[in-house]
Computed example of a mutant assay.
Amino acid sequence: MQVRRLEPSFGRYDELLAMIRAAFAYMDARIDPPSSAQRLTPATLKEKALSEIVFLAVDDQRLVGCIFCRPEPQRLYIGKLAVVPDRQGDGIGRALLMAAEAEARRLSLPAMRLETRIELTENHARFHAMGFEKTAENRHLGFDRTTSIEMTKHL
Protein backbone atom coordinates (compact mmCIF):
# COMPACT_ATOMS: atom_id res chain seq x y z
CA MET A 1 0.00 0.00 0.00
CA GLN A 2 1.26 3.46 -0.93
CA VAL A 3 0.08 6.89 0.15
CA ARG A 4 0.46 9.52 -2.53
CA ARG A 5 -0.85 12.97 -3.25
CA LEU A 6 -3.75 13.31 -5.69
CA GLU A 7 -2.43 14.83 -8.91
CA PRO A 8 -4.41 17.23 -11.14
CA SER A 9 -4.46 14.55 -13.86
CA PHE A 10 -6.38 12.15 -11.57
CA GLY A 11 -9.48 10.96 -13.40
CA ARG A 12 -11.01 8.32 -11.14
CA TYR A 13 -13.59 10.46 -9.33
CA ASP A 14 -16.41 7.91 -9.76
CA GLU A 15 -14.22 5.33 -8.03
CA LEU A 16 -13.12 7.79 -5.33
CA LEU A 17 -16.74 8.71 -4.60
CA ALA A 18 -17.78 5.05 -4.42
CA MET A 19 -14.92 4.39 -1.99
CA ILE A 20 -15.89 7.32 0.25
CA ARG A 21 -19.54 6.29 0.28
CA ALA A 22 -18.64 2.67 1.09
CA ALA A 23 -16.40 3.82 3.94
CA PHE A 24 -19.10 6.13 5.34
CA ALA A 25 -22.05 3.74 4.82
CA TYR A 26 -21.95 2.43 8.41
CA MET A 27 -22.88 5.93 9.59
CA ASP A 28 -26.15 6.12 7.66
CA ALA A 29 -28.38 4.70 10.39
CA ARG A 30 -26.36 6.25 13.22
CA ILE A 31 -25.91 9.96 12.55
CA ASP A 32 -28.28 12.87 12.09
CA PRO A 33 -28.00 14.93 9.97
CA PRO A 34 -26.70 12.62 7.24
CA SER A 35 -23.06 12.83 6.18
CA SER A 36 -22.18 15.46 3.59
CA ALA A 37 -20.60 12.57 1.64
CA GLN A 38 -24.13 11.67 0.55
CA ARG A 39 -24.41 14.99 -1.32
CA LEU A 40 -21.18 14.58 -3.26
CA THR A 41 -21.18 13.87 -6.98
CA PRO A 42 -18.16 13.05 -9.13
CA ALA A 43 -18.14 16.69 -10.32
CA THR A 44 -18.38 18.25 -6.84
CA LEU A 45 -15.82 15.77 -5.53
CA LYS A 46 -13.40 16.77 -8.30
CA GLU A 47 -13.93 20.45 -7.49
CA LYS A 48 -13.29 19.76 -3.80
CA ALA A 49 -10.24 17.61 -4.54
CA LEU A 50 -8.68 20.24 -6.78
CA SER A 51 -9.15 22.99 -4.18
CA GLU A 52 -7.75 20.99 -1.24
CA ILE A 53 -4.74 18.81 -0.52
CA VAL A 54 -5.71 15.17 -0.95
CA PHE A 55 -3.74 12.03 -0.17
CA LEU A 56 -4.80 8.68 -1.57
CA ALA A 57 -3.98 5.22 -0.25
CA VAL A 58 -3.53 2.88 -3.19
CA ASP A 59 -2.92 -0.85 -3.10
CA ASP A 60 -2.10 -2.43 -6.48
CA GLN A 61 -3.97 0.40 -8.27
CA ARG A 62 -7.05 -0.02 -6.02
CA LEU A 63 -8.12 3.06 -4.06
CA VAL A 64 -8.33 1.93 -0.45
CA GLY A 65 -8.37 5.24 1.39
CA CYS A 66 -8.24 9.02 1.21
CA ILE A 67 -7.86 12.10 3.35
CA PHE A 68 -8.76 15.67 2.38
CA CYS A 69 -6.78 18.51 3.99
CA ARG A 70 -7.35 22.25 3.96
CA PRO A 71 -4.91 24.79 5.43
CA GLU A 72 -6.49 27.18 7.92
CA PRO A 73 -4.80 29.84 10.02
CA GLN A 74 -2.57 28.00 12.50
CA ARG A 75 -3.81 24.49 11.63
CA LEU A 76 -4.58 21.94 8.94
CA TYR A 77 -8.23 20.91 8.73
CA ILE A 78 -8.71 17.18 8.15
CA GLY A 79 -11.86 16.03 6.36
CA LYS A 80 -13.20 13.02 4.49
CA LEU A 81 -10.81 10.52 6.04
CA ALA A 82 -12.08 7.29 4.49
CA VAL A 83 -10.86 3.69 4.31
CA VAL A 84 -12.70 0.95 2.42
CA PRO A 85 -14.49 -1.38 4.84
CA ASP A 86 -12.50 -4.52 3.97
CA ARG A 87 -9.21 -2.74 4.77
CA GLN A 88 -10.20 -0.96 7.98
CA GLY A 89 -7.90 -1.97 10.80
CA ASP A 90 -4.90 -2.37 8.46
CA GLY A 91 -3.25 0.94 9.46
CA ILE A 92 -4.36 2.83 6.35
CA GLY A 93 -6.14 5.58 8.30
CA ARG A 94 -3.05 6.05 10.46
CA ALA A 95 -0.84 6.24 7.34
CA LEU A 96 -3.14 8.87 5.83
CA LEU A 97 -3.09 10.91 9.05
CA MET A 98 0.72 10.67 9.08
CA ALA A 99 0.79 12.08 5.53
CA ALA A 100 -1.49 14.92 6.66
CA GLU A 101 0.74 15.58 9.67
CA ALA A 102 3.82 15.73 7.44
CA GLU A 103 1.96 18.21 5.22
CA ALA A 104 1.03 20.36 8.24
CA ARG A 105 4.68 20.41 9.29
CA ARG A 106 5.76 21.24 5.72
CA LEU A 107 3.33 24.18 5.78
CA SER A 108 4.64 25.22 9.25
CA LEU A 109 1.20 24.74 10.77
CA PRO A 110 1.38 23.89 14.49
CA ALA A 111 -1.82 21.83 14.71
CA MET A 112 -4.35 19.66 12.90
CA ARG A 113 -8.11 19.87 13.40
CA LEU A 114 -10.94 17.51 12.55
CA GLU A 115 -14.60 17.01 13.32
CA THR A 116 -16.35 13.76 14.08
CA ARG A 117 -19.99 13.08 14.77
CA ILE A 118 -21.10 12.91 18.37
CA GLU A 119 -22.61 9.45 17.87
CA LEU A 120 -19.36 7.89 16.61
CA THR A 121 -17.69 7.41 19.98
CA GLU A 122 -15.37 4.73 18.58
CA ASN A 123 -13.91 7.40 16.28
CA HIS A 124 -13.42 9.75 19.23
CA ALA A 125 -11.36 7.03 20.93
CA ARG A 126 -9.31 6.27 17.79
CA PHE A 127 -8.45 9.92 17.21
CA HIS A 128 -7.64 10.39 20.91
CA ALA A 129 -5.24 7.43 20.70
CA MET A 130 -3.52 9.25 17.80
CA GLY A 131 -2.97 12.41 19.84
CA PHE A 132 -6.15 14.40 19.18
CA GLU A 133 -7.97 16.09 22.07
CA LYS A 134 -11.57 17.29 22.14
CA THR A 135 -11.59 21.07 21.82
CA ALA A 136 -15.20 21.98 21.03
CA GLU A 137 -18.75 20.74 20.57
CA ASN A 138 -20.65 21.93 17.50
CA ARG A 139 -24.17 21.79 16.07
CA HIS A 140 -25.29 21.63 12.51
CA LEU A 141 -27.60 24.39 11.35
CA GLY A 142 -31.15 23.79 12.59
CA PHE A 143 -30.17 21.43 15.45
CA ASP A 144 -30.57 22.31 19.12
CA ARG A 145 -28.17 19.61 20.28
CA THR A 146 -24.51 18.82 19.76
CA THR A 147 -24.06 16.94 16.49
CA SER A 148 -20.26 16.83 16.25
CA ILE A 149 -17.12 17.35 18.24
CA GLU A 150 -13.98 19.09 17.14
CA MET A 151 -10.64 17.52 17.96
CA THR A 152 -7.18 19.09 17.68
CA LYS A 153 -3.70 17.62 17.64
CA HIS A 154 -0.85 19.99 18.45
CA LEU A 155 2.34 19.19 16.58
Rank of each mutant, 00 (worst) to 15 (best):
T146G: 12
V64Q: 01
A29R: 14
R62L: 07
Y13T: 07
P85L: 12
L45N: 04
L63P: 01
D14F: 08
L50M: 10
V84F: 02
R5N: 08
S108P: 05
E133K: 11
G93F: 02
D86S: 06
Q88T: 09
Q88I: 10
F68G: 05
A22V: 01
A129M: 07
E7Y: 06
R145G: 02
E7T: 15
P73H: 03
D32L: 09
K46I: 00
G131D: 05
M1Q: 07
L155T: 01
F55L: 07
G142K: 08
S9E: 15
M151N: 08
E150G: 09
S148L: 04
E47K: 08
R39T: 14
A102W: 06
R30V: 12
F132T: 02
R113A: 15
S148H: 12
A43D: 13
R62M: 10
M130A: 07
R62Q: 14
R139L: 06
I20K: 01
T121H: 09
I20Q: 03
R139C: 11
T121W: 06
M130F: 12
R105S: 11
R4Y: 08
A49Y: 06
R87A: 03
M151P: 06
R126D: 04
L17V: 03
S35F: 04
V64W: 00
Q2I: 15
K46A: 12
G91P: 07
A43T: 12
D60I: 07
M27S: 10
K48M: 15
E103S: 07
A95I: 09
P71M: 00
R106V: 03
E115W: 05
F143A: 11
D32I: 05
F24E: 13
R70H: 09
P71N: 02
E137R: 06
R5D: 04
A25S: 14
A99Y: 00
M1Y: 12
T152N: 11
E137L: 03
R30Q: 14
R87V: 03
R94H: 13
A102Q: 15
I92F: 07
A18P: 00
E52Q: 15
K46V: 00
D28I: 05
V58K: 04
